[in-house]
Design a binder for these strands. Structure first.
Lengths: 121, 121
DNA sequence: TTATTAACTTACTTTTGGTAAGTCAAAGAT
DNA sequence: ATCTTTGACTTACCAAAAGTAAGTTAATAA
């Protein structure tokens, strides 16, 4: 009984689905890249670097990255509040894989843009 | 004037943003993986393999992958229609990078699931 | 004449994301 | 003493994206 067609079926139990769903959101990978780039950042600093993200979405993105153990959140008991975000080791271990995607993106940006333009129909 | 904070700013001109936006959708990477797995597939075959995708979303996902030149579409003049989808060379060149992400996903699936469960608050 | 088939569309509903304003508590300005 | 500012968020409301289910097309089989 050949069930290779079910390999990608349900996202609960499929690691591929489960994790791609995770990074297949609009902002997670970008936040990870920014944190890798600058190491320690506060909420508003990230918001400035990715200025098209809404505060709401930055908040939920950071929260789920924290829940997944990819990002560490340190809150200082000051007022106004100060919160710092960093990559965890686990988060850092993801970065090379994302960067390999990014390299491909840079290398293929032009041709893809051209294809898109030519496609129009 | 330090403008490293603008590195990820606007998605029109930033390859990273542009391409991550592209694969940061819910289905594209999964469709590419399935096509890499089975090489040639018809619309309904893909739909069976990824049974949680809607026909509508499969249609728009395939269309934009085709527009980007990552997937090739071959239509045979038959009725009922027969259409076959394959990875293009460009699409195939993306696969290793996605697979490296998938390997990380498999390796970290357990701990991430545990972190998520522990996070609850 | 009606049913079937594959690859989609279309109309409609639900979910997700964006916008803008609000909250909180203390320190500084008036 | 009251008002303003500050940073990291929430909340309420609205727009955009994705899901659902039914419809379209044209030929062949029943």
């Amino acid at each position: 009984m050949e069930n290779s067609e079910k390999k990608f079926a349900d996202s609960e139990n499929c690691p591929v689905r489960n994790v791609l769903d995770r990074f297949g959101d609009k902002w997670s990978t970008l936040v990870l890249l920014v944190l890798d780039d600058t190491k320690v950042l506060r909420f508003n600093e990230i918001h400035k670097m990715i200025d098209t993200i809404s505060q709401k979405m930055l908040a939920v993105t950071l929260k789920s990255l924290e829940a997944d153990g990819l990002v560490l959140r340190t809150q200082y008991p000051e007022i106004p509040p100060r919160v710092e975000y960093t990559l965890s080791e686990r988060g850092a271990s993801l970065i090379p894989h994302i960067k390999s995607l990014v390299q491909w993106a840079n290398a293929n940006f032009e041709v893809i843009t051209q294809s898109r333009a030519a496609y129009k129909k």
